[in-house]
Design a binder for these strands. Structure first.
Length: 424
RNA sequence: GGAGAGGUGGCAGAGUGGACGAAUGCGGCGGUCUCGAAAACCGUUUGGCCUCGCGAGGGGUCACGUGGGUUCAAAUCCCACCCUCUCCGCCA
C-alpha cells in the first residue's frame, strides 16, 4: 500500500507506475474522494469539538445542581448531525480503501520499463550449460525410471499437479532443504524459523496476497485461514504491528515450508514434471531492512540465493524483471533462472524482491530511529533460497548419465548419507 | 467440544457513566549530584488522521481487543465477534 499523502503529492509518479505495470486503477477517483473526505472531516471535527465542550458543560451544570435540559436537547441534535457526517466519511474512506489497496508499489528507477516478461533484462550468467553426447531425458522420465517420482499416485491421492516422491527422491528433497538451511544460517547470517503453514486474512493482506491473489490460494472451509503460497507470508508477518529498534536492523530470517498454490489460470502450462505443482517445498529468505540500505540488501539477498546454485554447480542466469512482469508489492525484483535441459532454456528457480515500505505499511512494521523522532516503516525483502522441487528437476536433468542414473552434486553428498549416484 | 476468568499505554496494574489519553509502579530518555558509576531527586515518555505555518511548532479530532447499540456524555452499561488463560473431555 502506498502512502495516501505520497499519492496526493505525486499523482503523476503513481499514474506512471500503474501504467507501466499495465494496470488500471482509478487514481483520479481516489484523489477526488480524498478531497471530499478532508472537506467533510474538517466540518465533522469542528462539530465534535463543540459537542465535547457542550457535554463537559452539562456535566459541570449537573454537578452544581443546575438545569441542563436545554443543553441536552441541543447536544442530542448535534450528536445526530455528527453521526450523519461520520457515516459519510466512513463511506468515503471505504471507497478510497477499495482503490488504495489495489494500487501496486512504485517500481524503482533501475527497473526496465516494458510490457511483460519479454522486457526482462539479463543481468549476468554463471556456469556453462552442459553439452550432452546423448539425448538427455526430462526429469519426469528420469524420476519415473529411477522410481523416485510417482506422478500417477500423486494424482490418485490428491489431484493433478501433486506428486508422490519416493525413496532416494524423498531423501534428495530433504537433503536439499537441509543443505539450503545450513548454508543460509551458517554462512549468510539468517535465523531459521519454522512458521505456521496456514495464515489469516490480515497476514495475507499485509504481504499483498489479498485482495488480488485470493483465487490462487487454498482456503479452509470452516476457518478464515489460507494455506500459505510462500513462507514470505508468515515470516514477514512475524513483525506485523510491531515497532523494532533501529539497532536490530537488518533482521535476516530463513524458513523451510511447503507452499500451496492453486495455479488458477495456468492450466495448460508445465503440465508435466515438478515445475508447476500445487504443493512444493521452498526455503525462503526474508529481511527487514533500514530504508537507506534496502537496495544493497537486495543485492546481497540475490547473491545468497545464487550461492545455492553455485555450490550445486547448476548453471543459471540472473534476470531483472521489467515493470510489466513485476509482482504487485515489489519495487524491484531479480529472478534466478536455472538451466533446464528439457526446456532447453533457463527456468525460474528463485525470485528476490525489495518491497520497500509497501508491505511494511500494510502490515504496520516500523522501527524507531535511535536518534529519536518519529517511527518509520522498515523495508521488507524476500527471496527464494531456493525452490526445492525445481532444484530436484535441475539436478536430475543436469546430472544425468547415459544409463539413466544421476550423479549427486558433491556438496550434497554429505546430506545424502554419502550417496554419490542414484541408480535405477 | 463443555465450564469459568479475562483483554487498559513498552511492561505490570488501577479505574463500574461526566473533571480519564487515562492513577501508580517498573522500564526507557534527559537532567541534578559524582572523578566516574550506582543510589537518590527533578523532569519527560503512544499512535493515526485533519488543519494552520516556509519552518520551529501550534490547534483540533480519533483510538482502553474488534464491530455495533444505549446515553446529552462510554475504558466504564448492553449485544455480537475475535483472542488469551484455567479446569474438564478428546488427541499427535
Amino acid at each position: 500500500m502506498l502512502d495516501l499523502k505520497f499519492i496526493r503529492d505525486n499523482p503523476e509518479t503513481v499514474k506512471k507506475a500503474v501504467l507501466d505495470r499495465n494496470l488500471k486503477v482509478s487514481l483520479d477517483d481516489l484523489l477526488e474522494l480524498d478531497r471530499k473526505r478532508r472537506l467533510i472531516l474538517t466540518e465533522l471535527e469542528k462539530k465534535r469539538s463543540k459537542h465535547k465542550r457542550g457535554n463537559k458543560e452539562i456535566g459541570e451544570l449537573m454537578r452544581s445542581g443546575g438545569d441542563a435540559a436545554v443543553m441536552r436537547a441541543e447536544m442530542g441534535a448535534l450528536s445526530e448531525n455528527i453521526k450523519e457526517l461520520e457515516e459519510e466519511v466512513g463511506r468515503l474512506e471505504k471507497d478510497m480503501r477499495e482503490i488504495l489497496v489495489r494500487i501496486p508499489n512504485v517500481p524503482d528507477g533501475s527497473v526496465p520499463v516494458g510490457e511483460d516478461e519479454s522486457a526482462n533484462r539479463e543481468v549476468r550468467r554463471w556456469g556453462e550449460p552442459r553439452q550432452f553426447d546423448f539425448p538427455p531425458l526430462p526429469h519426469w522420465e528420469l524420476g519415473e525410471q529411477l522410481d523416485i517420482l510417482d506422478f500417477q499416485r500423486g494424482v490418485k491421492i490428491a489431484e493433478s499437479r501433486f506428486t508422490l516422491i519416493k525413496g532416494v527422491g524423498a531423501l534428495l528433497e530433504r537433503a536439499l532443504i537441509n543443505f539450503m538451511l545450513d548454508l543460509h544460517t551458517r554462512e549468510h547470517g539468517y535465523k531459521e524459523v519454522f512458521p505456521p503453514i496456514l495464515a489469516n486474512e490480515e497476514s495475507m493482506f499485509s504481504t499483498g496476497q489479498l485482495p488480488k491473489l485470493e483465487d490462487d490460494m487454498y482456503r479452509c472451509r470452516d476457518d478464515v485461514l489460507y494455506l500459505i503460497p510462500t513462507a514470505e507470508v508468515p515470516v514477514t508477518n512475524i513483525h506485523r504491528d510491531e515497532t523494532l529498534s533501529e539497532e536490530e536492523l537488518p533482521l535476516y530470517y530463513c524458513a523451510y515450508t511447503p507452499c500451496f498454490r492453486r495455479e488458477a489460470g495456468s492450466y495448460g502450462r508445465d503440465v508435466r514434471g515438478l515445475i508447476r505443482q500445487h504443493q512444493f517445498n521452498k526455503v525462503e529468505m526474508v529481511k527487514f531492512s533500514h530504508p537507506d540500505s534496502s537496495f544493497e540488501e537486495l543485492e546481497k539477498l540475490t547473491s545468497d540465493a545464487e550461492d545455492v546454485l553455485k555450490l550445486l554447480d547448476l548453471p543459471y542466469r540472473v534476470v531483472i524483471l521489467s515493470t510489466g512482469d513485476l509482482s504487485f508489492s515489489a519495487a524491484k525484483c531479480y529472478d534466478l533462472e536455472v538451466w533446464l535441459p528439457s526446456s532447453d532454456a533457463y527456468r525460474e528457480i528463485s525470485s528476490c524482491s525489495n518491497f520497500t515500505d509497501f508491505q511494511a505499511r500494510r502490515g504496520d512494521i516500523r522501527f524507531k530511529p535511535s536518534s529519536g523522532g518519529k517511527s518509520r516503516f522498515v523495508h521488507t525483502l524476500n527471496g527464494s533460497g531456493v525452490a526445492v522441487g525445481r532444484t530436484v528437476a535441475a539436478i536430475l536433468e543436469n546430472y544425468q548419465e547415459p544409463d539413466g542414473s544421476v550423479i549427486i552434486p558433491e556438496k550434497l553428498q554429505p546430506y545424502m548419507n554419502g550417496l554419490e549416484k542414484i541408480t535405477p
